[in-house]
Write a protein that binds this DNA or RNA. Structure first.
Ligand code: FES
Ligand code: FES
Lengths: 132, 132
DNA sequence: TATAAATGATACCATATTAGTATCATTTTG
DNA sequence: CAAAATGATACTAATATGGTATCATTTATA
């Protein structure tokens, strides 16, 4: 089971790198070289981060992306929500009726509890806290 | 994120139903009617449960499947391992090198901790404990 | 003001995983 | 021997993930 998908992963790495020089405007070319992430994929990711107000973007020659939010205020869970959709462990419940025979669906309750825990843990993890 | 896939889910439901009459030999036809799970899919699932010694199987006319293990000794995690492979949250680590810049990969450690928790919780859940 | 270098928007393709089907062989009972 | 069951296994379909391609727009600067 994959907690973090590739795009979230790449976003983490990119933002951490950018945090090194928080005032600097990075072009995709530059980032792609340093991180070696496939260029068009990285570009898409950066555009999404921009739409979500985590980066600022500058068009035109000499343009690129700039960290907008402090790395300490960007949480892993934010990125997961952006790239992976709202975090939830038991989609199953909503696709099908609750399991016959398990009338009150105890399973669901127990999964909810685990989900609660994971969300709480994930909320605590800022990108800043991963560095150093 | 899906903790439990469809086949595991179906397996749970089927085993719970069979636990109602632990001595009875159920044919696929019978189970498929009661659970309305697509017949050939259910069949595959039952065969896998048989291979994994959770069910006993009887070939030939009048044959079918019989619960071999007590429902209290079948754990959700067993089924997940059978149908979904060994449970682990961070496959990511093994596909790519640890993230550059995050040298000691704190993220990995934190994910491992969550994984530990989930495994502990999942270990506790027997199918028996879901019923009644 | 033309050109090059950047992002914006968006549609597309490739691969992997999950979900489900089909088929033929074998066993068993009557 | 025929019917009714599972064993084994290969195939197909749907979805999610990972990655490309392309054209439009903006901006700096020669
Ligand atoms: S509602 Fe999903 S297993 Fe019960
Ligand atoms: S090793 Fe996977 S995020 Fe660091």
């Amino acid at each position: 089971m994959r907690l973090i998908t590739r795009d979230t992963d790449y976003a983490i790495r990119t933002l951490c790198l950018m945090a090194d020089r928080p005032k600097k405007v990075f072009s995709v070319s530059e980032l792609t070289k340093k991180l070696n992430i496939p260029r068009p994929f990285l570009r898409k990711i950066l555009q999404i981060l921009h739409k979500n107000k985590i980066l600022e973007a500058f068009k035109g020659k000499g343009g690129g992306f700039l960290l907008k939010k402090s790395i300490d205020k960007i949480y892993l869970l934010d990125l997961m929500n952006i790239f992976q959709g709202r975090f939830s462990l038991n989609r199953c419940l909503f696709k099908r009726k609750p399991c016959p025979r398990i009338d009150t669906c105890k399973l669901r309750k127990r999964i909810k509890k685990m989900e609660r825990y994971l969300l709480d843990e994930l909320k605590k993890i800022s990108l800043g806290s991963l560095l150093n």
